[in-house]
Design a protein around this nucleic acid. Sequence first.
DNA 1: GAAAATTATATAAGCACTTATATATTTTTA
DNA 2: TAAAAATATATAAGTGCTTATATAATTTTC
Lengths: 164, 164
Amino acid sequence: MNFYQSLGFLVFGSRLKRLSDTFLQDVNKVYKAHKIAFDASWFPVFYILSRKKEVSIREIADELGITHSAASQVVTGLQEKGLVKMAVSRKDARAKAISFTAKGEKLQQKIEPVWQALQQAMEQLACEGNKSKQVLQGLTEMETHLQEQSLFSRIETVLASQQA
Amino acid sequence: MNFYQSLGFLVFGSRLKRLSDTFLQDVNKVYKAHKIAFDASWFPVFYILSRKKEVSIREIADELGITHSAASQVVTGLQEKGLVKMAVSRKDARAKAISFTAKGEKLQQKIEPVWQALQQAMEQLACEGNKSKQVLQGLTEMETHLQEQSLFSRIETVLASQQA
DNA sequence: GAAAATTATATAAGCACTTATATATTTTTA
DNA sequence: TAAAAATATATAAGTGCTTATATAATTTTC
């Protein structure tokens, strides 16, 4: 039993991060193995554009829960690779209208089967153990509870009760 | 329902990372609120040193599941802050013997109650929903299953079966 | 309708990792 | 026991975020 397992919740965050990194690395290996010039980090924007022809930086950031800065940087990168194009929005000159280029659209179609296989593999993984099945639901539940009361305020409450 | 919730497992990794970042930020807020000059990222090394007087870079890296490079950088940072000291190991001249300075030890003692409060807060959070209770167990289970067969090989299997 | 506040974006700098590379020491092996 | 392999570390460069700051366009408010 290693450090993380023995310490449990106290290092929950780091464990989640590690698992997350492993996921992204493995998905990238799949793209590489199939000689698809795609990076897992592009996925979120690609997914959004596969469902909505035109989006703004702000919309991407909000949907992904990242900063506009991060969204801006990702989109700039995709633009440099010729996968998306940016135009000034016709409705609002502050906003950009981001959409696939022909090249981007073609790549998106090439990748669809991998996305589906990934989803299936993840579902299988979750069903192997009776507990892992609930990881996703549990995670959603935790997110909800954390919105109701932040971890910060929870810790403060515990600390206050200890001093009493 | 936002992007992540609707897409589920396909973006599991990113969700985990976000949750992890939220945790670390909140814990840092607690230290700040109590005017403790401590950063959540120092915790793993502090925890290890709180249980074992002397460790090497390699031991830290292995226990945390990070690269030796990362461990080396973290320790260098803590050394610069005067919280740990490094000496050449008496047993092996390649290895470093890392230990607390007096200042580091004092800080560690100051922080103990916060660690305990954090652990308690996390346990409470996990008990609020019947599903989140199993997040930690489920996570451990997933880690085990992933060691048995990697996500990469799982995705490849699905893809191969689709082509048949 | 001009001034103030808000919104959308870009960019610089920082952080915590990573990989790749290099060096020093120890252990293995032929 | 000398050469080869393995191990422990440091450091440079890269990644994908963050915060902080700046600019431009729009909306609100008086």
